[in-house]
């Protein structure tokens, strides 16, 4: 051991040694944060809620599948994907649940990222260590993202496993890939809310304020934004006798304005990924439909349809991250 220490101390290549040290420090923060997330009671509660909804919607889906679907249809109709989308009306489908609860998970993971460290007096101690300041933010984000990814991918695998047992039909390769894409989109969606709440945690000194701000945005987008958009659309709606181009323009506008809601982006993206029969998301003219053969799309085409939605979600996520980054880098950190 002594020679290792001597070697590390007297390495002439200072530069290489220091970058290694930085990488080591980054990993240390990520591991510590992940450990904190998994040990945290608050996270256990959130994981519990999500697991319960998962089990609930899986149960309704499986019972619905057993009753409703004729046996000969199973091969062609992406039977396995129905586990995620089918609902008998008592409980919403899994992907609807996630679009509703995902934000809560993201906010729960992020709202005390920076401010609680500052209140505990550990932030100024941490920043006095030889690490770049953005490592704190980046590593904490990475840790939370990894936690989300682990959670969602294990949930998806659990659902697949439960489906295998209950239905005794294995998923096809394409179904499996679609489920993986869906999970990936879910991770991005939660990361969006995570970054928003990280931003609030940089802005507000009190974790409760940050949490409330995050929840306010979430409520706004799930409850008030649809109302508001309906209001706007009602006033702009052309009469049924209006010329077709204005009707078409209105439809286009309706499609565009709805996409301001991140929840809507997510449900558009996931429903297209999970239901291969969805061929288009926006308005279509008769000419566009003419000659189209009804049938499921291959995965690549489905991804192509939701590409704008995906890009939008990633862009919002990055914007939130950049905002919190700028704010955090310029902040003067005093003790407590």
């Amino acid at each position: 051991m002594n020679c290792i220490i001597v070697f590390l101390k007297e390495d002439p290549k200072m530069k290489i040694k220091n970058t290694d040290k930085l990488r080591y420090a980054f990993r240390a923060i990520v591991f510590k944060e992940m450990g904190d997330h998994f040990r945290n009671k608050r996270m256990l509660i959130l994981f519990g809620i999500i697991l319960l909804t998962c089990i609930g919607s899986l149960y309704t889906a499986i019972s619905g599948l057993k009753n409703a679907t004729p046996a000969e249809e199973t091969e062609s109709s992406f039977f396995f994907l129905k586990l995620f989308t089918l609902s008998d009306g008592t409980l919403p489908a899994y992907f609807v649940f996630i679009s509703f609860l995902g934000p809560l998970l993201g906010i729960g993971l992020g709202f005390d990222t920076i401010n609680s460290e500052q209140n505990k007096g550990t932030l100024s101690r941490m920043l006095a260590q030889p690490i770049p300041r953005d490592y704190v933010l980046n590593a904490k984000f990475t840790a939370a993202l990894l936690v989300i990814a682990i959670l969602f991918f294990s949930l998806s695998f659990l659902v697949i496993g439960a489906g295998l047992i209950a239905l005794s039909i294995p998923p096809t390769a394409e179904e499996f890939m679609r489920i993986m894409c869906f999970t990936f989109v879910s991770v991005i969606y939660v990361a969006l809310w995570l970054n928003l709440s990280v931003y609030f945690s940089v802005c507000f000194r009190q974790p409760t304020t940050a949490a409330l701000a995050g929840i306010a945005v979430w409520l706004f987008f799930t409850v008030f934004a649809p109302l508001l958009i309906n209001l706007i659309l009602k006033t702009l709606e052309p009469s049924p006798y209006a010329p077709p181009y204005s009707q078409y323009a209105f439809q286009q506008f309706q499609f565009a304005i709805i996409q301001l809601i991140p929840n809507e982006l997510y449900s558009q993206a996931t429903s297209t990924l999970l239901m291969p029969t969805i061929r288009n998301l926006g308005p279509l003219t008769i000419e566009q439909i003419q000659g189209a053969i009804p049938g499921p799309l291959p995965l690549g085409q489905s991804i192509l349809i939701v590409w704008p939605q995906l890009t939008g979600m990633i862009a919002v996520t990055m914007a939130c991250f950049i905002l919190s980054y700028l704010r955090f880098m310029r902040k003067e950190i005093r003790s407590r």
Binding site: G121, T122, R125, A128, Q129, I131, S335, R336
Partner: peptide, 15 residues
């Protein structure tokens, strides 16, 4: 920060 140690006023630790 590699060479200088800083003990902030009212230092905090991970409880």
């Amino acid at each position: 920060k590699r060479k200088v140690g800083y003990l902030p006023e009212d230092v905090g630790f991970y409880d």
